[in-house]
């Protein structure tokens, strides 16, 4: 069993809005970089499948060479090798096309996992485009993945609950977070071992861009002034709060 996970290195997604800053219409380069949050859920899911099926796991990323140090966290978690396609585009079709090239450079991938959304572009569209390019089904918002009798059984987390789906052959899944795929914290030994795992670097290939013209990126103004209520006497505090909510007709 060979699983591939698409993982992207992104600027720190926990920077609070007040501190957020742009340069050249993108997050300022002073923010530290890290693996996307949902991409880590995808890696964790893949490692669990790998452990169950004695398979192997390749991490694939499109980005800069500088990202390799952060991708190594995935190797420390349990990926066997990394493939980096060197490129700088934010265009979803260009990214998907380049990730397809990387996937085609390795043999027999049985399943491709991605994060539900990248933690910078927040769009959830790259894995669906990639699936169509490969001609295989794409299913988003997957929590659990199982392999039984040659087919995949997956659980999709929906707005109302969940549904269990089955398909055979390769497919592309985007992974959402559930308590069971909270990313493991790699042991120090694993972090050292990860430094020796193979990293394959590929040049990017020409891909057709989407017909979208970026006009502007702006930081929205937050205009909210918090009225702090003294909590010394909790009974009094809740009375003041309820009065204020009623006065301003929120309740």
């Amino acid at each position: 069993m060979h699983i591939a996970v698409l993982a992207k290195v992104v600027p720190d997604y926990l920077v609070p809005s007040m501190d957020f800053e742009l340069s050249n219409n993108r997050a300022h380069e002073r923010f530290s970089r890290m693996l996307g949050l949902y991409d880590e859920n995808a890696i964790e899911t893949a490692i669990q499948i790998k452990e169950k099926t004695s398979g192997s796991l390749t991490l694939i990323s499109y980005g800069s060479e500088n990202d390799i140090q952060f991708l190594r966290k995935g190797a420390a978690m349990g990926a066997d090798q990394l493939i980096l396609v060197k490129g700088t585009s934010d265009d979803a079709a260009v990214i998907a096309g380049n990730l397809v090239t990387a996937l085609q450079s390795i043999d027999n991938v049985d399943l491709v996992l991605a994060g539900q959304q990248s933690a910078d572009m927040d769009r959830g569209v790259v894995p669906g485009i990639l699936a169509q390019m490969l001609g295989v089904p794409f299913i988003p918002q997957i929590g659990y993945v199982d392999h039984e009798n040659g087919s995949w059984t997956v659980t999709q987390i929906t707005a109302q609950g969940k549904r269990e789906l089955e398909f055979s052959g390769p497919g592309v899944l985007s992974i959402t977070s559930i308590p069971e795929n909270v990313p493991r914290i790699p042991a120090v030994r694993a972090i050292f071992a990860a430094k020796k795992k193979p990293v394959i670097k590929l040049e990017s290939t020409d891909q057709k861009k989407m017909a979208l013209n970026e006009l502007e990126v702006a930081i929205p103004k937050i205009e909210c002034v918090c009225e702090f209520i003294d909590v010394e006497d909790p009974g009094q505090a809740v009375r003041i709060l309820l009065n204020r909510l009623n006065e301003e007709r929120y309740l």
Binding site: V15, S17, A119, D122, L212, E214, E216, V217, A218
Partner: peptide
């Protein structure tokens, strides 16, 4: 984009 910290116009 960026978790709502910025808005992109296309």
């Amino acid at each position: 984009i960026y978790g709502g910290k910025a808005i992109i116009k296309q």
